[in-house]
Design a binder for these strands. Sequence first.
DNA 1: ATAGGGTTAG
Length: 555
Amino acid sequence: MMVLQNLGFFLQHCAKAKALRSGLSLHAAAIKIGLVAETSICNHILNFYAKCGLLHPAHQMFDEMPHRNLVTWSAMISGYNLWGRPHIALQLFSKMQKHFKPNDSVFSSALSSCASSRDSNFGQQIHALALKLNYCSVSFVVNSLILVYMKCGMCGDGLSVFTDSSFVHPTLVSYNIAITGLVENKLFEKGMELFMILFRRGLLPDRFTFAGLLGASEAVYGLSTVLQLHCQMVKLGLDCISFSGNVLMTLYSKFSLFPESYKVFRSIGEKDVCSWNTAITYCCHGDDHSKALDVLREMDANPDDYTYASVLSAAANMASVRIGKEIHCRLIRTGPEWDVGVRNALVNMYGKCGNITSAYTVFERMEIRTLISWNTIIAAFANHGHAEKAMALFDEMKTIGVEPDSITFLELLSACSHSGLADEGKMVFESMSRVYGISPGIEHLCCLVDLLGRSGRLSEAEEYSDKQLRDDEVVLGCLLSASRVHGDVGVGERIAKRLVRLGPLSAASPYVLLSNLYAMNNNWDAVLRSRRLLRDGDVEKEAARTSIYVCTLRI
DNA sequence: ATAGGGTTAG
């Protein structure tokens, strides 16, 4: 009896700590002393396997057990639920009902499976069963139920569970799940309402509440609301813990308030990898690439795939092959298990830094390639003026069965543009909708018009732009620029008139182009006129500037 | 039971 209890206790510990080796030797010991016929021991062994994600041995135990009880089923169902197999978990739940009535923990596992597989039908069935068996006052069954409805986008049903009179004491967790669900379903005001009610009920929000409320994929609250929420978080000390602080950082960045985001980062006490990654990412978005690299050097957590992908992108944007190589070396030293995202970022970095050979080597050595990998390498060759290679890679990717997207075509068009291949560009453009069912966007049209214009095929370019239903500032800008290159005042004036009709322009370049066009033809009065237009339009023309990165090699 | 981060173009 003693042995039985102790063995069970140890196995439970192994399951919790995911201690594989110890658990396995306990299983061996159980066989050796002939305890594998004991239902309770078998349950413990099964549970150990299930919690560790070893679903095969767990299920084998399940099949071989002479007597199964509710705990057996519960452990098996929870294992499948825990390790991302919700459908199997639900099948088992159905089978189980022939033998046992579910208890609260089985209910909770099954409902969690419904939530992750977005199975509202099954959820409703379990809801009915829970009502029948009187489990709808147990808080964590009800919480799981709210989660199911929210994940399935049935917010009304979720909220009615929440306000159901039999559910007398919604806990903070219930509020958190409901608020998070409402925000996920874009019902921001409802979420905020519930947030207020929570206060009135005398509860205090925690990190989950704020994370749920602030986790909106877009900044919808308006800055003043965000500031108020930030204040609340400061009061409760939740701004300086990573869990909710990270979300706040992301939110500020959505308002492009990168310095604010960075301040939050600095105030977080124990920063986790994600805090560091978020800081690095948004330094990059704020165009402060060298700060991003400083953050990397200061980082005390272990960098992961996300870190390296972001930081390589910083190196790429600075076009600094020195820093890029430094990071690559670090990857080689600590690798080799870097995922496809990191490798894509490497290819991109070498491409942007002008090292096409290294870019291609990294690409060729990749075992797994995504659409982004192909797009990245095609862009690299396109930018280096190797249109044929870009096209060849496009063919190769189609042969393997990777479906191109609109970005692929943008890059192919840019490849043609960089190499002056007007006819090929037209073919690419035409094939988009005809062969691939992707309708060209305004940016594709710009690229093509630009390409035709540069090749001196102004009338063709104008034809394409006329197929547009309305005038577009950028497309017309391309045409104007082409007429400038070829000194065609007739086309230039016609386009300029259309541009002016669009109203005040956001960019100064069309005015400048037009005046340069006149200057080319020695029409100085017209130059003055177009310059005045620029001033009257209240458009600022910033002085152009160029910067280079100086790097000293020490040999 | 409840979260947060990346890599392609523009």
